[in-house]
Design a protein around this nucleic acid. Structure first.
Lengths: 234, 234
DNA sequence: TACTGATAGTGTGACAATAACACTATTCCA
DNA sequence: TGGAATAGTGTTATTGTCACACTATCAGTA
């Protein structure tokens, strides 16, 4: 980007740039990730994240939203999306140099009616994020990184709500946290802290669940949902 | 990255890819960032981060280390470096589409003997990170993001030591934290917490500093220097 | 040699956050 | 109407955080 070399990118072979989107949801009590079956080589028949080449006039974010829309039908407004990391190992694609900007995305299970976990005929399917099929390219590495980021964000922000439908019971919310963090949480502490954080509000509706019906809550739109980190030093 | 479109990147104009490195140190009691004066248009005469095109056979990290070495003489072993974020707005460079993978780097002030703050003749100079000169491209935005990341990392990891010489007094360490976080810290609390974190060890040497000499410490190589974040939910 | 200026170094107590823990309430169904 | 199933609620012990002030050691100088 600077001197003293003359500034002419054509002096170099140029890598290609793609975006790949790791889209999570919670479905059937597990964390699921959306994968698409590759039809062509390399890795034909294997599964990969939705993604594709960045167009010359669109931003990286736009490219990610566009690929998500094109390949999975998930609308821009329905997802939480943020840049994850850029993977650029020279031989991550066996044919040519491709640098991919990976994105991390969350969607509520109610926003994706057309896809069904277990529908093997489809090109696009949800898979367990912890037990995915063999993935193309370096997508296993990307998935591991995305899961780490998800856990991490869950602890200090309120993105977790993006994994749930618009309204949810407190039990469903707690289970979502337990599924992602892979640990059991205490019901009373969870609710106490939730109350203090002031990020959900009750709706007048209830969900039947075999016993006493549970009140449905929604995420408070105006909630400031970050938390101070505990400092290593004061 | 996937189907069903035929997989041929030459169908699209390709963006170019660069790396840019935001290198920080602490010098003369302030947080400083290394900038290089551009000789050519666009933005000739303005300042920019060290960086350049990613070669077709090198990884992104390697490109960042290489540019740092080439443009500033800072050796790979002497710096802490991590990927920051990828900036890819279509018009961030006025001439053509350039996507840049920004890196974030820290170096101890003792590792850079050849550069001097205030030496205006040089191509490469240290500037106050909080009061930089006008920067080329979107580098102001990148700098702001890097400072945010630096503050953030300081709070839950031990990267702060990378900003100091090999050995340092506890006062110098505290001042480094105060400079970066831009707030005053309590001496006793700082030392108490440092003791509990168990990340530094005393050396047998002292530094003269006008009054009672201060013991020099070094960072413990085996220190596990992450801290649990305070959770939004238990 | 003792006094002064300058910086190094050390501990405690009040307050806030966290974590462990068990019972009552409401609904459905047999 | 009693039992199965799930919802919902508060208190206490422990731990972490934060505010706060004095003694120690060195250099220089009267």
């Amino acid at each position: 980007m600077t001197n003293p070399k003359p500034y002419n990118p054509n002096d170099y072979d140029r890598p290609s740039v793609t975006v790949d989107v790791v889209l999570f949801t919670i479905l059937d009590g597990t964390l699921q990730v959306l994968l698409i079956k590759r039809k062509l080589d390399p890795f034909a028949g294997q599964w990969a994240f939705p993604g594709g080449f960045v167009r010359i006039t669109e931003s990286l974010d736009d490219a990610a939203y566009r690929e998500l829309q094109e390949e999975t039908g998930v609308a821009r407004e329905a997802v939480y999306l943020e840049q994850l990391y850029t993977f650029g190992d020279p031989d991550r694609d066996p044919r040519m140099r491709i640098i991919t900007v990976a994105y991390f995305a969350l969607v509520g299970a109610d926003k994706i009616p057309q896809l069904r976990s277990g529908d093997d005929a489809a090109d696009a399917r949800w898979f367990s994020a912890y037990n995915p099929p063999p993935l193309a390219f370096d997508h296993s590495e990307i998935l591991a990184y995305a899961i780490t980021r998800l856990r991490y964000k869950l602890e200090y922000s309120a993105v977790g709500f993006q994994l749930l439908p618009e309204t949810f019971t407190l039990r469903e919310l707690q289970q979502a946290y337990e599924i992602v963090l892979d640990e059991k949480l205490d019901k009373r502490n969870f609710r106490n802290k939730l109350r203090k954080a002031d990020v959900v509000e009750p709706t007048p509706h209830f969900r039947d669940s075999g016993g006493r019906p549970a009140r449905l809550y929604r995420f408070k739109a105006d909630a400031v949902a970050e938390v101070k980190t505990r400092r290593l030093f004061p």
